[in-house]
Design a protein around this nucleic acid. Structure first.
Lengths: 251, 251
DNA sequence: CATTAATGTGTTATTATGACGCAATGTAAT
DNA sequence: ATTACATTGCGTCATAATAACACATTAATG
């Protein structure tokens, strides 16, 4: 908990934090995992601090696991945010009192903070949004309906989505966001949602299959209206290969 | 100077620094600006610390200006490096003594540091590599001949170049690296050097002119062996437009 | 059993790319 | 001066990638 960290703040990097933009996909919506601590009236990105004996990537993984309960997730650093006033007056006396943090110790929190942004892609269906033992609400929220966030978290979220959009042209995506078996229309919806743009069904199929990362299964989706679409899975080996080498070289 | 910063370390973000990979282009070589402080046997990237009352971007600009003397430069944050041991045992007692830094104050330097990486593209011809009043050697070094660097600076440099290679597909480049007037073969050499790959002359011309950011001048390069190539300049307005909107959308 | 709203599988025109050919130009050698 | 040579400028052609669209197929629904 926050109080434990502050009471032992010498074990953490001062003035430096991590914030995670955790993306999931459900009901044809790109969802973001947001949290709201008691007493707060705004939502925030899940974040944390950096133990002095942990790599920042490790600290980011810790943040992610503590909120989602899953491991082996796609996690990527995308930017660091360091405007002087980004956390100005974020913790006031009343909040510190409420959190039972001594005024002296509280100064550690009140200093200027720089935060390192990570974004994660996770399988919505595997995540339990509300792990026990935390005094906070954790919720998946459609990225188009994100309410006002604390500090510069809105800017961080936007930047994460921008990065994701750009990286969509450089790497395959979906393995981390979709269940093991999925349909092409589902994958297309994912792309359309991220890009906020309609794509042509038939051109999408051609382009996505040409990448060579999909395995067509001998199985159709059941319980659907209209024609049952075919199920696909990712060929993990080829997927990872393309992830490493990138696609769309350009030059 | 370093001693001044350490003596007033309460004015700087603790455990956080900035390192800049400054690229220039000259003699068909991609150059990197490296520095070597007295007494050190390894080179390092120009870096600095972050005043508590300055945005990190501002602090990066300061680092850049103090080393190159130019303003209005292309500067971009590309990654943050935070392995636990990245600066382990970098400053030892002897070095601190030499720098006339008290042992107590020196502890500020010995803690674990996270560094934010920026890369810059500058016009080689406009930079004075050795600004006066600094007890250090500043030098342009061909990126293929970079000697051993301190800490993880090699990793930072490699990552900067990787980023540059990727961004070459997303934005035009050259405005910041070439003189005002340049030839197509020069621009091609720049691309080839960054990508470490030969490109076809004729296809390059077609692709680069199709972007619509070049103005063909009514002037040829003089004093050259063989046929004199035509001079071009960038159409800054269109260049900035493409910079903003990006090229090669992909999806 | 026809309707409907999806999916699966094409075609065609246009554009971008990769791999070249060849003439023009200016320096350097004879 | 004439010629050789390296380099530039401006093409062509075959192939691949992309955009736009047509039509048959499928399964739930009334």
């Amino acid at each position: 908990m926050l109080k434990d960290i502050i009471d032992n703040n010498e074990n953490y990097q001062p003035g430096l934090s991590i914030d995670c933009v955790i993306f999931g996909f459900h009901d044809n919506q790109l969802k973001v995992l947001l949290i709201k601590v008691e007493r707060a009236n705004k939502w925030s990105l899940p974040g944390g601090f950096i133990p002095v004996d942990q790599d920042i990537d490790t600290a980011a993984i810790t943040v992610l696991n503590s909120r989602t309960g899953v491991e082996g997730i796609f996690l990527r650093q995308f930017a660091t945010f360091g405007k002087v006033n980004r956390n100005h007056q974020h913790f006031d006396k009343k909040t510190l009192e409420y959190l039972q943090i001594e005024e002296e110790k509280g100064k550690w929190l009140m200093r200027r903070f720089v935060t390192i942004g990570y974004y994660a892609l996770v399988d919505f269906s595997k995540i339990l949004p509300n792990p026990t033992g935390r005094m906070e609400i954790v919720e998946w929220i459609d990225h188009k309906e994100v309410p006002e966030l604390i500090l510069d978290h809105r800017e961080i979220l936007d930047k994460a989505l921008d990065t994701l959009r750009i990286e969509l042209n450089l790497m395959p995506i979906g393995y981390n966001l979709l269940p093991e078996k999925f349909t092409i229309p589902e994958l297309q919806k994912l792309y359309e949602t991220i890009l906020d743009k309609k794509l042509d069904r038939r051109n999408f199929l051609r382009k996505i299959t040409n990448i060579g990362i999909l395995t067509k299964l001998d199985e159709k989706k059941s319980n659907v209206a209209h024609k049952a679409p075919n199920l696909y899975s990712f060929d993990k080996e080829k997927y990872d290969e393309v992830l490493k080498n990138g696609l769309n070289q350009g030059w």
